Computed example of a mutant assay.
Amino acid sequence: MSANPLVTRELLFSYFTGQATVLQKQLIEKWVAESPLHEEYFYTCLHEWETQNLLFKADVESAITQFHDRFTDQATFLGESQAAQIPARKDKKTAGWKIVLVAASVLFLFLFGAWHVREEVLYKSYKTSYGEISQIRLRDGSQVVLNANSVLQVPRFGFGGRSRNVRLRGEAKFSVVHTPDDKRFVVMTDSVFQVEVLGTAFNLSARKSGTKVVLQEGRVKVLYKGKPSQPATTLIMAPGDLIKVDKRQKKLRVKRVQNPENYSAWRDGRFVFENTSLNEIKDLLHDNYGLTVVLDGTDVPTMSVSGSFQARSANELLQALSEILNIHIIRQDDQVLLVGKR
């Protein structure tokens, strides 16, 4: 039960529907953070609201018609000779299966919508677009620099009090403050990789091509699972350690690097390559700028780059690569072709 007469069940329902004012939102968020009992009441009301408000209203008859049209289109696609062999009658068994399929689809949409709303309520999301870098200060004083095309999710309630858990999809530089009660700071990337720290500075990249963490200061514990069902392997990192997981090969590699700060040079619009292959740079251009890069020729895919390059845009980086490697760059919108000069 709410201990604050201003925070009522009706006000919380308004909050869930997005109709609360800015002051009301601040009141609710402060109230929830005051006590675990308040947080429990908040979730109780959230569950009640979710069960009372269907996010999708299904037109079953329309859905059945759409399923029928799909079956008809499929018969037409098979050809006139094959379509003629398909019975045209609708018996009760066929109608029953259609209803089951429609019901399953409606249930999926409802659960998906409910989960999406829950995520929006429970987590504040910081997002960057292609080519954008954003600086974030968390409530515990930790600093995060979010690289391009990345998402950081931070719990709206309880962060810094009972736990310091965040989610990352993309790349970010973390500078985590130490708390008097030694509360750990956890960055979760997916079901098989997470990073735990107390107070430290590190760069973490969690892209489709793989996950990579480089420690600059302090100590970090990495938990890695080859598969979600496997027990986690624990690795303790020291400054200068790099741990990389290639998602294509499902392998974890650990090595020492001389200049760990180079791995977060992107904060200053600088790229530092150390015998980096063009295939890796191709992934970087896709992750940071949304470009689809094609390497043309027999020599181009085997080329590698070393050095430091100042580039504030994709075009500046492409121009630098063209001059260093003596290759042609052909770009049309988001499509890029790298061709060796003959």
Rank of each mutant, 00 (worst) to 15 (best):
P180M: 05
D69G: 07
A103V: 12
L138F: 08
N4T: 05
R70W: 11
I236W: 15
W97T: 04
T234D: 08
V100W: 13
F77Y: 13
D287F: 04
E196G: 03
K98E: 14
Y15S: 00
K30L: 05
E29R: 10
G226P: 02
S142C: 10
R118E: 14
K124L: 13
P301Q: 10
E29C: 05
F77R: 10
V339T: 13
F193Q: 01
K30V: 04
H68M: 12
P231R: 06
E10W: 09
F13I: 01
L295G: 01
A172D: 02
I281T: 01
G226K: 15
N326S: 14
S129M: 13
T292L: 06
V32L: 09
E323C: 06
A33E: 15
I327N: 02
V195L: 10
P5D: 14
V121S: 04
F309R: 03
N315D: 12
M237K: 01
E274D: 09
L12Y: 04
K244Q: 07
E50H: 08
L138S: 04
D182R: 09
T189C: 09
V22S: 09
R9K: 15
V294Y: 13
A206H: 04
D140C: 07
S205N: 08
E120N: 13
L138M: 10
Q135F: 01
E261H: 07
G18Y: 08
K98A: 15
F202Q: 02
G141N: 12
S14A: 07
T51M: 08
H286F: 07
F108W: 13
G96M: 11
N275V: 06
W49G: 00
V220G: 01
Q24C: 04
F112I: 08
A265D: 07
S229L: 14
I324F: 06
A148D: 00
N262W: 07
L284N: 00
R156C: 10
V187L: 06
N53S: 06
L321M: 11
A84Q: 14
G307C: 08
S142A: 13
K127P: 00
V195R: 02
N275P: 00
Q143L: 12
G199H: 07
G340D: 05
V294R: 09
K251V: 10
T276Q: 04
E261N: 10
F16I: 04
K225V: 05
D91R: 05
K225P: 00
V195T: 05
F202T: 02
F309A: 03
R9W: 07
A206C: 11
L122K: 09
E40Y: 07
T292G: 06
N203R: 03
P36K: 11
F112G: 05
D59N: 15
L111A: 15
V166W: 03
N326H: 14
F71G: 03
R167T: 11
T51H: 09
D268V: 04
A314C: 09
A3V: 06
R167Q: 12
A20T: 12
K282H: 00
S304I: 12
D73F: 12
I243K: 01
R70D: 10
W97M: 15
A63P: 01
D246Q: 02
K93H: 11
T51R: 13
V305C: 04
K250V: 06
Q66M: 12
Y224D: 04
G226C: 09
